[in-house]
């Protein structure tokens, strides 16, 4: 009953396949079977946000999905955003504003920011903090993360900082 099953999905724009027991969490499947280790695992209870991915277009906790549920899905991980020598705008803003220290939380923040920049006005810092409240960071104190997002919102809205 716990035999491995075949899972085929679109990961960061490419068709990939893997095998996993149904009970394997999507976060472990992405890291250990698909070998995309940018997605981090913190709490495995939905609280920390380190494992945030895009699942069929919207951000979701990969520790609260099973590998089996990825079959047929379109998934993006932090690796979809940019590469070390070709950072995207969100990654550049995080670097510019020192929005990371150890970097453990960063993939989750980047994925959350990639969605909220598209979906929310983020017109006040309070709103930015509220939208980021599902991602925990133990290093930065959040201030620099909020600055990075404010910069990105200004770029998006054509506001001179």
């Amino acid at each position: 009953m716990n035999a491995k099953i075949d899972i085929a999905l679109t990961l960061n724009g490419e068709a990939v396949t893997g095998r996993a027991e149904p009970r394997m969490l999507a976060s472990d499947f992405i890291r250990d079977v698909l070998l995309m280790t940018g997605t981090h695992v913190g709490c495995e209870q939905g609280v920390c946000g380190a494992c945030t991915i895009r699942f069929n277009g919207v951000v979701a906790r990969s520790c609260l999905l099973f590998a089996a549920q990825l079959d047929g899905a379109v998934v993006e991980t932090v690796e979809s955003l940019g590469a070390p020598h070709d950072l995207n705008d969100i990654q550049k803003a995080f670097r510019k504003h020192h929005a990371l220290q150890c970097g453990f939380c960063t993939p989750g923040f980047l994925m959350t920011v990639s969605e909220i920049l598209q979906t929310l006005p983020l017109s006040t810092d309070h709103e930015i903090r509220d939208a980021l409240s599902g991602n925990l960071c133990r290093c930065t104190g959040y201030e620099h993360i909020v600055r990075a997002v404010r910069d990105l919102v200004n770029q998006r809205d054509g506001v001179q900082a």
Binding site: G46, G49, F55, R61, L64, E115, I116, G134
Partner: peptide
Amino acid sequence: VAHVAIRNR
């Protein structure tokens, strides 16, 4: 209710 990612799901 919770946070963006949890409200999506």
